[in-house]
Amino acid sequence: MNNIPIIKLENINFGYDSRFILNNLNLEIFYGEKIGLMGPNGSGKTTLLYILTGFLKPFSGKIIILGKERKEEKDFLEVRQKIGLLFQDSDAQLFCPTVKEDIAFGPLNLKKSRTEVKEIIKKIANTFNIQHLLNRPIYQLSAGEKKIIALATVFAMDPICYLLDEPSDGLDETTKKRLKDLLNTWVKTCLIVSHDKEFLRDVVKKIYVLKDGQIFPYQDFFQEG
């Protein structure tokens, strides 16, 4: 398991209109790796996550996820069920009438039974300390609360690999700390896009930088003060 990458991108090219965003990009994520991804605004971090989950199709290059090449929409169903994506904008993530139903949505798609889903909701609510929010309508939540619920919906699916786009954005210190603990204990493999250096330092082992359409290792990240 450890020597086959969960995610492998080979020479990915992508752009919007005539503007190139990803330029012969290569990336490998192995089981058990925790990676932080940094990069200037507009460098294509979110685009990269959308390519990994099949929402954007690269102009050229190979996407190999869980050992299989993924090309068409139907190839990505398995990817989306096993790899959890947290959207940068929580409003983009949540759409059900209540928090409870939103958390249940993923597990239901994984064909879990009603009783199992109930258990999952209970467990997730305890972990994220959101029991009091379960029956609230989504649109009444604050921005920070939406972020927590969005995270909860991803964790509820218990994915093999987490792709998190700015997970610490807008969270208070207590919640951020809880999220760090969760990422350290619960999550084995993840790719976290963030500008929050302190947060990354506490949860990941490796930092990549996306610049000029390619990925580079950030060598001195953990030595810097």
Partner: peptide, 22 residues
């Protein structure tokens, strides 16, 4: 956006209540 949110969590349409509800 909503469609992405739905697909990102592995939704597949079928002839069942879960689909209609979604």
């Amino acid at each position: 956006k909503i469609k992405r949110a739905v697909l990102a969590r592995g939704f597949k349409s079928g002839t069942n209540l879960h689909t209609y509800k979604t």
